[in-house]
Every structure is written in structure tokens, then in C-alpha cells.
């Protein structure tokens, strides 16, 4: 189901918590599983739950509660643009519009070739660098002027 590499990362997370509190690692393990698979299918969530010895429904509750888990396939490159007020005052919606021009998609959509998904997100704790976007949940990109967006899209090709 998941690579040996991912399972090794699972064990590293489990070791952070008291032995009888394995469930504490569920957020991290779901994130690791998503890193490998691109999204969380029901059977992936169930696998994680079984690995941690918790009821699948409890793992499913976690997967649906936190916004960075994807419960449906997304594009290879997911761009989450923060549009909360502080960022909106400094070009967040301009960045969304610019992405629409370049990729032909708006928030919540994926390009037909499956390469890009654009999402609107909430405050990423980086408002001083607005406009900001998060690439694939991992890389924070700040000061995303048109030139910077061009550069990023080029890099993602």
C-alpha cells in the first residue's frame, strides 16, 4: 500500500508520543501517505488507521476536518493562494486573476492536463510577504508578483 520509505517515516512520528498514544501520529501519517499518493483515498485512510490501531472512522474524521488533506485527486502542482484580508490588501486577488490568465482556471479547478490545481486558502502566517501561495503543501512562495508567478510556473512545467 505504501512504500517502505513512508512506513519508516510513520515510525519516526509514532515514536514522538507515549506508547499507548499512537493515535497522536495520525495527522502526520495521513500527511505522509498523501505525500506519496497525491491524495487520500478511503483505502489509504483505512490503512493508516489500521497501522495505528485506531478505528478507521476516527482517522476519517481527522482527514475530513483539516483543510490540507485532499480527499479527491488534485493536479500535480497544487497552488493554494491565501486570499484572507491582509493578503487581499496586497495583491492576493491580483495573483488569483493572474493565475487565471496564465492557466485558464480559477480557484477550486484543475487544468485539463492534470498539471495544476488552484485553491484559495486562509492565512498561512506569512502576510508580510503577500501575495503568498503554498506549493503542494510544502513550499511557501512569497511576494508573488507576475514575474515571480511566471518563474514558478516555468519551474513546475
Amino acid at each position: 500500500m505504501l512504500s517502505a520509505e513512508s512506513l519508516k517515516r510513520f515510525d519516526r512520528e509514532v515514536a514522538k508520543y507515549p506508547a499507548e498514544q499512537k493515535q497522536s501520529a495520525v495527522m502526520a501519517c495521513l500527511a505522509i501517505a498523501q505525500d506519496e499518493k497525491g491524495w487520500l483515498a478511503p483505502e489509504t485512510v483505512e490503512f493508516v488507521a489500521n497501522y495505528l490501531g485506531m478505528p478507521p472512522v476516527a482517522a476519517w474524521e481527522v482527514a475530513t476536518f483539516y483543510s490540507m488533506y485532499e480527499l479527491k485527486p488534485v493536479g500535480k502542482h497544487k497552488l493554494t493562494v491565501c486570499t484572507n484580508l491582509p493578503c487581499a490588501l496586497s495583491g492576493a486577488y491580483h495573483a488569483v486573476e493572474y493565475l487565471r490568465q496564465k492557466l485558464g482556471i480559477g480557484p477550486g479547478e484543475t487544468t485539463p492536463d492534470g498539471k495544476f490545481t488552484v485553491k484559495e486558502g486562509e492565512c498561512q502566517g506569512a502576510c508580510g510577504d503577500a501575495p503568498v501561495l503554498l506549493l503542494n503543501n510544502h513550499r511557501m512562495c512569497g511576494r508573488m508578483t507576475p514575474e515571480q508567478i511566471d518563474r514558478l510556473l516555468e519551474e513546475c512545467k
Binding site: A25, V26, A31, A58, F65, S67
Partner: peptide, 26 residues
């Protein structure tokens, strides 16, 4: 140890945060 959140403003509230470390909804 470090615990990594995954997108929920409410987990900044201290008791939601504890629930979240316990591997539950925040």
C-alpha cells in the same frame, strides 16, 4: 517533539490544539 498541524485555524485555541495532538478533530 514537534507536532505538525494540517490546516485548521481553530487548533490555535489551546484545548482544540490538545485534542489535535491527541489525534482527533480540533
Amino acid at each position: 517533539f514537534a507536532h505538525h498541524g494540517y490546516g485548521a485555524y481553530i487548533c490555535g485555541e489551546e484545548t482544540a490544539l490538545l485534542e489535535s495532538i491527541e489525534g482527533k478533530k480540533g
